[in-house]
Amino acid sequence: MREDAWQPTPTTADVLTARTGALGRIRLNRPQSINALTTPMVVAVRRALHEHAEAGAGAVLLDGAGERGLCAGGDVRAVRESVLAGTGAGVEFFAEEYATDAAVADAPVPVVAWMDGIVMGGGVGLSVHAAVRCVTGRTRLAMPETIIGFFPDVGALWWLSRAPGQRGTRMALTGGTVGGADAVALGLADRLLGAGQLPEVVDRLAAGGDVSGLGAGREEVTSAWLTDGLDPFFAGDDPVAVVQRLEAADDPVARAAAADIRARSPFAVAVTLAALRRAETMTSLADVLEQDRRLAPRLAAHPDFAEGVRAQLVDKDRTPRWTHARLEDVDPTEVAAVLD
């Protein structure tokens, strides 16, 4: 397809649209920030999805500009600034973002997500709910929010709470990154393809076909995450017990996971585990997104969020000063207060 076929959306040039045969296309176009999402971007994606469906597209393909990945997540630095300034723009971002995640899940035409390269945070929200989720050998997928004092939002807890065993719990608490094969094995993606197969995917969809038969599916991939034996450590609803079991293990992988958890906001870790266990009992993605809508402004207003974003993305000193020194210091009533 000629590159000049792309058109910016009416509200922002950070999202492009195109039509190729039966295929509608949406491209995140902020490559300098690995397509980090802003409020205008998530609104534009939702509107473009609706317009492609109204125009009779047989499918819609979502991808990201540049070589680094689909999307590194939401622009949390901007959210932090809005929270510190008290403007309410951060709350607006979350509401619009989750509405777009729901629109991807409920789209009247199949959404095909091209999850190449970095797919994290808000990028997971735009892609993991798609009808067909294509990853590659370059995919690096994660929900790393606990390192910035937040929780895995964008409806991700629906999928993480339904991953085999306790693998989703491990991802949520440690912020662990998985590759393409792992993502398929964990139920976070459908097909593992080569990074160079995007033109083939476009041609098939433009001709009214699908991607079945391309690459490898869940029964054809192998994953270290499914065989390393860490599941028992992550069982239960007590985050202190989880981390202490990991620390006492003979397995160096378990002890490394404990160190990862200890480096993160104790409050965010405790809230994340409680929210994940609640998500396990929910009956729809809409229920999980509603929980996210309640939790997001509360966690964003907590001091750990501003501090976590500062340490990771603003000053980049990687030495956050969390409200609680250790998980053991988090009062369960504090956790219950933000969940209820």
Rank of each mutant, 00 (worst) to 15 (best):
Glu54Trp: 06
Val128Leu: 08
Gly122Phe: 07
Glu67Pro: 11
Ala48Pro: 04
Asp101Ile: 06
Val124Cys: 09
Arg46Gly: 02
Gly137Glu: 13
Val111Glu: 08
Asp153Cys: 08
His50Val: 13
Val104Trp: 02
Ala107Cys: 12
Gly24Ala: 03
Val83Lys: 01
Pro152Asn: 09
His50Lys: 09
Ile147Val: 14
Ala59Pro: 06
Asp63Gly: 14
Val112Asn: 06
Arg46Lys: 06
Ile34Lys: 12
Gly90Leu: 14
Val109Thr: 04
Ala113Phe: 07
Thr20Ala: 14
Ala113Tyr: 10
Thr38Asn: 02
Glu145Asp: 15
Thr38Ile: 00
Arg140Pro: 07
Arg80Gly: 10
Asp106Ser: 14
Gly56Cys: 07
Thr20Leu: 09
Arg47Phe: 04
Glu51Asn: 11
Arg133Gly: 07
Val76Ala: 13
Val132Thr: 13
Arg46Cys: 01
Ala57Arg: 04
Arg68Tyr: 12
Val104Arg: 06
Glu54Tyr: 06
Ala113Gln: 11
Arg80Leu: 13
Ala102Phe: 10
His52Trp: 08
Ala95Arg: 14
Pro144Glu: 09
Gly24Phe: 10
Val128His: 07
Ser82Thr: 13
Leu28Ser: 09
Thr39His: 00
Gly123Trp: 05
Gly86Thr: 06
Val132Asn: 02
Val112Pro: 04
Val60Thr: 13
Ala36Thr: 08
Ala99Pro: 03
Ala105His: 12
Thr20Tyr: 14
